[in-house]
Design a protein around this nucleic acid. Structure first.
Lengths: 140, 140
DNA sequence: AAATTTGCTTTCAAAATGCAAGTGCAAATA
DNA sequence: TATTTGCACTTGCATTTTGAAAGCAAATTT
């Protein structure tokens, strides 16, 4: 009864994040600077509406892509971070980056980062995923 | 005046296909079996509505991801195929496939294909892109 | 000549979005 | 202690997008 009808992703797995730019933006933000607060997401360049952010965070949590935890300094704050499943989205984000770099103007700093990654893509992805996974453990 | 406000993609390039599952599905279909007709897309498993298909095909064409051309056999039919820019989305679709395979049930045949690709991802991507680009030239 | 196929367009109700304002709680300040 | 501020949301509502079905014109088949 509470079973939601999910959209199909382009490789036959059902998941709402496909077809939602805001979800991808949240994942990208987290990959770049791990624990983020609600406010951090709102501050991002793309100006997500606060109600949309709330629904997307909830959806990502339900799908096991992110987790919520308490901020060490303040109970008023909430920390969001990626799960292993979320971290594994890195290769996709990286490939989107390469593609965008090839066909669109992107800012210099991002261009430089991508150029570095290109030198050893597989290694970069592997070590970054390892690092992010270790950081999860740290926060427990 | 006709300047549409475009959504931002997660890597700072503006493009509507990010955040739209139907666009991704169209690209996936084309990567799997190059020229497709309007009807082919409608026949796909995911059941895109015909009006949505029309707007997405138009959008993808405007963004230089696909092109329309005449069917050699019939004036009633229209062929859609990827441009080089569209073909270059392959690495992204492949990575989405790997991720989905890791975390969701996908059907056996796709699983098998992905397993094969995994053995030599870089080579597979390179040769497939080359092949698809050659096929574009053929159709001219 | 009539029926069917093909590639769309139109209509319209239902759902999703996006902006602004509001709420509740915790922490900082007066 | 009282009050303001900051943070994480929620609510209301107008606008936009979606999705299902029906319609349509041109081309093709029967």
């Amino acid at each position: 009864m509470d079973q939601k009808k999910r959209s199909n992703c382009p490789v036959s797995c059902s998941l709402d994040i496909w077809g939602d730019k805001w979800s991808l933006l949240i994942v990208r933000d987290l990959l770049e600077s791990q624990p983020c607060t609600y406010g951090d997401f709102l501050k991002a360049e793309e100006k997500i509406a606060t109600n949309i952010l709330a629904t997307r965070l909830q959806m990502l949590e339900e799908n096991g892509i992110i987790t919520k935890s308490e901020h060490p300094d303040s109970k008023a704050k909430v920390l969001y971070q990626l799960t292993s499943k979320g971290i594994d989205l890195l290769p996709i984000i990286v490939e989107i980056g390469f593609w965008a770099d090839k066909y669109y103007e992107i800012d210099k700093s991002k261009k430089a980062v991508l150029k570095e990654i290109k030198k050893g893509k597989e290694l970069f992805v592997k070590t970054t995923i390892q690092r992010l996974n270790k950081e999860i453990v740290k926060n427990k």
